[in-house]
Measured scan of single mutants.
Amino acid sequence: MDEEYDVIVLGTGLTECILSGIMSVNGKKVLHMDRNPYYGGESSSITPLEELYKRFQLLEGPPESMGRGRDWNVDLIPKFLMANGQLVKMLLYTEVTRYLDFKVVEGSFVYKGGKIYKVPSTETEALASNLMGMFEKRRFRKFLVFVANFDENDPKTFEGVDPQTTSMRDVYRKFDLGQDVIDFTGHALALYRTDDYLDQPCLETVNRIKLYSESLARYGKSPYLYPLYGLGELPQGFARLSAIYGGTYMLNKPVDDIIMENGKVVGVKSEGEVARCKQLICDPSYIPDRVRKAGQVIRIICILSHPIKNTNDANSCQIIIPQNQVNRKSDIYVCMISYAHNVAAQGKYIAIASTTVETTDPEKEVEPALELLEPIDQKFVAISDLYEPIDDGCESQVFCSCSYDATTHFETTCNDIKDIYKRMAGTAFDFENMKRKQNDVFGEAEQ
């Protein structure tokens, strides 16, 4: 370990593993360490099931009705991949897709007046949907046509809207959309967690709705994908990429100290040895004095023996409960997957309800979601602090990732990755940087 590296990475969460992969592909010498004996950090999948019970201090362990412990891979952080989103792009560019198998999530649902409705995925579904009345549908269709044709580089498509100054509230007004449709559009399509976006320039919202539609167009059922064997497969896929390009991995490796000289990182000390480096990437748990708390998320993992009611017996789905429907500031989400994804025993389902904490009784906040899941065989409640770095790391060369937020997709995580890359490399992130180099010394032969 007593060696000189360009970059040392602490923690094998998804953000850290993707950055480690990119740095290795770009010719950097990388050492990647984790104090845990497993990959994934906060974003790991726990197996066998006995391990999950232990982690949540349920000492009696799983009953026999849960089947074989080894058949379970339970995500600690519930997220899906947008089919046309940035993480899929990263997987394709790096060819990490060859280590993973994905399934399309069967449906996306939205909560309205105590019931759940399928988010329409085709024009026919939209016309048949009970989510809105006849005239509302016509106006909504006009709005969707506007979004589909919108091109930020072609003012002819703006229809009198200025993407940089017109607020989204004004765009909704222009198409005369009612409150329910606005809730549905902002939260189930643009996937905002709160209503803060309404008074911001509309460009980002329009682009988010386009991303949803384009992702949906790829597979038809929903815009989301999920990897077989759980999300823990993602960091491992990128760790393989890093290793192929010469990255060194050490799990179960305690970090005793991060060594600084004149305010700059110069190395990491572990078990009496020092590895030197020019730059350091880590998750917040490794540098508690360089991060601040930015809120909390509650996630309740529920094991069920039945599909969720009114989802047409889907073996995977997402449910969004827009905040307006339950008098909150932030949406509540449910991600459900099952034995069909090799993450649970035969006939079992895993539904994870999550939201940003707003009160001193977080469990009560998630109740509307839990009511949709009854009866629940077993619950595991996790309340996590969200951390963000206190500075950009440019001076110390210590670059810290943000905690995983309450969103049900990876777009915010990818933004964090691109942002850290830019601060480390001094140049904007470009997907081309992730391409495997042809015929290089570490390149794998085609399968």
Rank of each mutant, 00 (worst) to 15 (best):
V274G: 03
L87Q: 02
P389Y: 14
M134V: 08
R35L: 08
A406C: 15
T185V: 10
G67V: 07
E444R: 14
L81T: 14
F431S: 08
S316E: 04
R328Q: 12
I319N: 05
A275D: 00
R328G: 08
Q57R: 08
F109D: 01
F80S: 04
K112W: 13
K156R: 12
F380I: 12
K418N: 10
D385C: 11
T122S: 12
S20I: 01
Y229C: 09
S20E: 14
C282W: 05
K435Q: 12
Y172C: 07
I18Y: 01
K221L: 12
A239S: 05
V96E: 10
V147E: 06
E446V: 03
A406T: 09
V104M: 07
M168V: 07
I22S: 00
K103R: 11
C335R: 01
E273H: 03
I8R: 03
T360E: 14
M168N: 14
F150C: 03
C335Y: 06
L81I: 00
I116K: 07
I319K: 02
L216C: 00
L87M: 00
A217T: 09
Y224G: 06
C202H: 13
R208S: 00
E50R: 06
N312S: 10
P63R: 05
V110E: 15
C277S: 07
R292G: 07
C317K: 05
G27C: 10
L304I: 01
H341N: 00
D183E: 10
S44F: 08
M132T: 08
K435M: 12
I18H: 05
C302R: 02
G426S: 11
I303N: 09
N312F: 07
F238L: 04
G61A: 08
I300K: 05
H187K: 15
S316L: 14
I281M: 09
P62H: 00
C402S: 12
E106Q: 06
I116Y: 13
F140S: 02
V334R: 01
R35G: 09
Y39L: 08
T359S: 08
I8Y: 11
T15H: 14
R70G: 12
C317L: 08
P307L: 08
R423L: 09
C17R: 01
S43T: 07
T165V: 09
G160W: 05
G113N: 03
M250K: 11
N439F: 14
Q318E: 10
Q296N: 08
E358V: 01
R290I: 10
G113T: 06
E367V: 12
Q86E: 13
Y93C: 07
C335G: 14
M424R: 03
S316Y: 00
R193Y: 15
N153D: 11
N36T: 07
Q378N: 14
G230N: 15
F399D: 01
P322L: 02
R276G: 13
L241S: 06
